Simulated scan of single mutants.
Amino acid sequence: MLKKKTVGAGLALVASTVLIAGCDGWLGETGGEVDITAMSAEELADYLVLETGSYRLEQEAQEGGSARDRMTQDGIQAACSLEGDPDAETAGNVIAMARESYEAPPGGARLGNWRRGAELARSGYGYRVGHRNDDHGQREPGGNCYACHQMDPAEELYGTLGPSLAGYGATRGNDSAVVNYVHQVVSNPHQYFPCTQMPRFGRNNFLTEEQIAHIMAYLLDPASPVNQ
Rank of each mutant, 00 (worst) to 15 (best):
A61T: 13
L111H: 03
S224I: 08
E100I: 00
D74F: 05
P86I: 06
V14F: 06
A170S: 14
G173V: 08
M71G: 11
E60V: 11
S66P: 02
F206Y: 08
E51L: 05
A78D: 08
D24L: 13
L44V: 05
C23E: 09
A147Y: 05
D85G: 00
A45G: 12
E155M: 15
T30S: 09
D135C: 03
S40C: 03
G130T: 01
A78I: 00
L161S: 15
D24T: 10
G202M: 01
R70D: 07
G22V: 02
K4C: 07
M216E: 08
A104H: 05
A109Y: 12
C195N: 10
Q150T: 01
S40E: 05
A166D: 11
P105Q: 09
G159N: 13
A177E: 12
A41T: 14
E100R: 01
R200A: 12
M71P: 02
P141V: 12
L50R: 13
D175R: 09
D87E: 04
T6I: 15
C148F: 10
T90N: 10
G92I: 07
G130K: 09
E209S: 02
A9F: 14
K4R: 14
G117N: 09
P86A: 09
L120G: 01
R115L: 10
V179R: 06
P163L: 15
G130S: 12
G92K: 04
L165H: 10
V14Y: 13
A91R: 04
L27R: 06
V185T: 06
G65S: 08
D46M: 03
A109H: 11
R116D: 13
Y168K: 03
V182M: 07
D35E: 12
E33N: 07
Y146E: 02
E155F: 05
V179Y: 02
R172L: 15
S40W: 04
R56I: 13
H183E: 00
V226Y: 00
G31F: 10
Q62T: 07
D46A: 15
C145I: 07
Q211A: 05
S164E: 03
Q211S: 03
A78P: 02
A91W: 04
G117Q: 11
V179H: 00
Y55K: 04
R56D: 15
V226I: 09
A15C: 14
V186A: 00
Y192A: 14
R122P: 00
P141G: 09
S123C: 04
G22N: 10
T30W: 02
V94S: 11
V129S: 12
T160K: 14
S176H: 02
L157P: 00
R115C: 00
R203F: 11
P86F: 10
G28E: 08
Q184D: 07
D135T: 04
G65L: 06
L207W: 08
K3V: 11
E89C: 03
Y127T: 06
S40K: 13
K4W: 14
K4A: 15
D135G: 03
V186H: 02
N144D: 14
L57N: 02
D35M: 04
Q228Y: 07
T30L: 13
D24K: 14
E210S: 09
N144I: 04
A79G: 00
A217R: 01
Y192M: 10
A88P: 01
A213V: 05
L120K: 06
H183F: 02
F201H: 12
L120P: 02
G92E: 10
S164D: 09
V129F: 03
G32M: 06
